[in-house]
């Protein structure tokens, strides 16, 4: 399990308006592209100097492909990154704060301590 790689996905998608839209409309395709092209890219470095070892587990890939924010929380993905990206994708389909409240309600079965987010 790589909390770092999950966070890297959320971080790089959230900061790019084009990737946000691609992840909203085609999550399977976007995740496949991202893992092939971006997962091992050292940010700020050229492609030839990429890392060689980063890959999602099957469960991580499934959670990202299905927009499963509850599973991402359970894996210890950084909650701020997940929330920010998911608001960007789905708030537009809901009334004021409706999406944010539903997002929290979907996690209501969880109690402290929450999954560790240290990377």
């Amino acid at each position: 399990m790589s909390k770092y790689l999950l966070n890297k996905f959320l971080f790089t998608v959230d900061r790019d308006p084009e990737l946000v839209e691609r992840y909203r409309t085609d999550p399977v395709g976007l995740v496949e592209w991202w893992e092939a092209e971006m997962a091992n890219r050292i940010l700020g470095s050229i492609s030839e100097e990429r890392s060689t070892w980063l890959a999602f587990t099957d469960e991580e890939r499934r959670a990202l492909r299905t927009h499963d924010h509850v599973a991402l929380f359970g894996m210890g993905a950084h909650p701020f990154l997940t929330l920010t990206l998911f608001i960007a994708m789905f708030e537009r389909d809901h009334g004021p704060l409706e999406y944010q409240k539903a997002y929290g309600a979907a996690l209501a079965h969880l109690s402290l301590p929450y999954p560790d987010i240290a990377t």
Partner: peptide
């Protein structure tokens, strides 16, 4: 403050 968890936006 809670962000991205069950207690957010209360």
């Amino acid at each position: 403050l809670e962000l991205g968890g069950p207690r957010q936006f209360g």
